[in-house]
């Protein structure tokens, strides 16, 4: 096990190096001179000069790369080009806001989608199954944007069931007042594809030989489904849920924009609009690191769920 972990961490190094190279080339080489980008966005010439100095733009490219690598490992990307706040402070401040919304979405989605998936897979081939699948296809096809725009207008503006937008500093106010509508709308969008996917996992397993064996043993259809099939279908389902974790930190940037939720997603969109490169660079690199850690976690989890998997 520890050999395995060691090897996996060893294997992550090239990937991480690759992500850093990608980000470096994207922003420092293709991104061009901050002076040109920031013309009109940042007033003072001194500040631009300071940025050039900080990035080492006057030095050869490998020095610039070295500066970038140092930034990554010292968690110091300097200050945002537009707000002058420290980038690390921005991330630490915004990430929990996104999580307040997204963790709930993640949990509710898992509960609802898995329950429904098992239910329709149980009744596979029936009218209910086909109807639910049809609705899912249609629901999946409609853009998230329409749900958000129409949902906000109808449920908040017209019916006044929820506040139209906003966010407060108090966690419980957020959870009870501002978060429910965004969560509801995100669930509308996320459940359909999850449901379809999980159903296919469950249905795949119901056709396996061991399910037939369980029936031949005299297990009831319920038992076959919940003890035998679901336990096997859990392997891909849990994997899928874990892999969705890194995305949670970005939150749904669309929903954060529309509902003015000051999370990481909104921060990213603003940064992109203002060409605030340090913020984007930092978030991209750290999320990639996090995603790699989650991947490792998934593999270890996989071993716990599926005894056939050998960690070599």
């Amino acid at each position: 096990m520890s050999t395995y972990l060691l090897r996996r961490i060893w294997q992550m190094i090239p990937t991480l190096a690759g992500v850093m190279l990608l980000v470096f080339f994207l922003f420092n080489v293709f991104g061009g001179d901050p002076a040109a980008i920031l013309a009109g966005k940042v007033a003072s010439k001194e500040k631009i000069d300071a940025i050039r100095e900080q990035l080492g733009l006057n030095a050869p490219i490998w020095v610039q790369l070295w500066i970038f690598v140092k930034q990554v490992f010292t968690f110091d990307f300097g200050a945002s080009w537009s707000t002058n706040e420290a980038v690390s402070a921005i991330i630490l401040q915004k990430a929990p806001v996104s999580l307040t919304v997204m963790l709930q979405v993640w949990l509710l989605d898992a509960i609802v989608a898995v329950t429904l998936a098992v239910a329709v897979a149980y009744k596979r081939g029936s009218f209910t199954d086909r109807a639910v699948m049809g609705i899912c296809t249609a629901a999946m096809s409609i853009s998230l944007l329409l749900y958000v725009v129409v949902g906000q207008w109808l449920l908040a503006y017209k019916l006044e069931w929820f506040p139209v937008l906003g966010w407060s500093d108090d966690f419980w106010t957020n959870v009870s007042t501002y978060a429910p509508l965004p969560i509801l709308l995100l669930l509308f969008v996320s459940i359909a594809p999850s449901l379809r996917l999980y159903r296919s996992f469950v249905v795949e397993e119901t056709g396996q030989d061991y399910a037939r064996t369980a029936r031949a043993k005299g297990a009831s259809e319920h038992r076959v489904m919940f003890v035998h099939v679901l336990r096997n279908a859990a392997v891909p389902i849990v994997t899928n849920l874990a892999l969705a974790l890194p995305g949670l930190f970005v939150g749904s940037f669309l929903i954060e924009m529309v509902f003015s939720i000051p999370g990481l997603g909104k921060e990213i969109v603003n940064a992109v609009q203002r060409s605030d490169f340090p913020v984007i660079k930092a978030i991209t690199v750290y999320l990639a690191m996090f995603a790699m850690a989650v991947n490792l976690l998934v593999d270890v989890l996989y071993k716990r769920l599926d005894p056939r998997v050998e960690l070599k």
Binding site: L22, L26, F253, V272, S275, A288, A291
Partner: peptide
């Protein structure tokens, strides 16, 4: 595979935004 791993370790939408920011 290395290429693929790089591209998939950043959440898709973030990568799109990063590219959009530059281009």
């Amino acid at each position: 595979e290395w290429f693929y791993n790089i591209f998939t370790s950043v959440p898709y939408i973030l990568l799109v935004l990063a590219f959009a920011a530059v281009f």
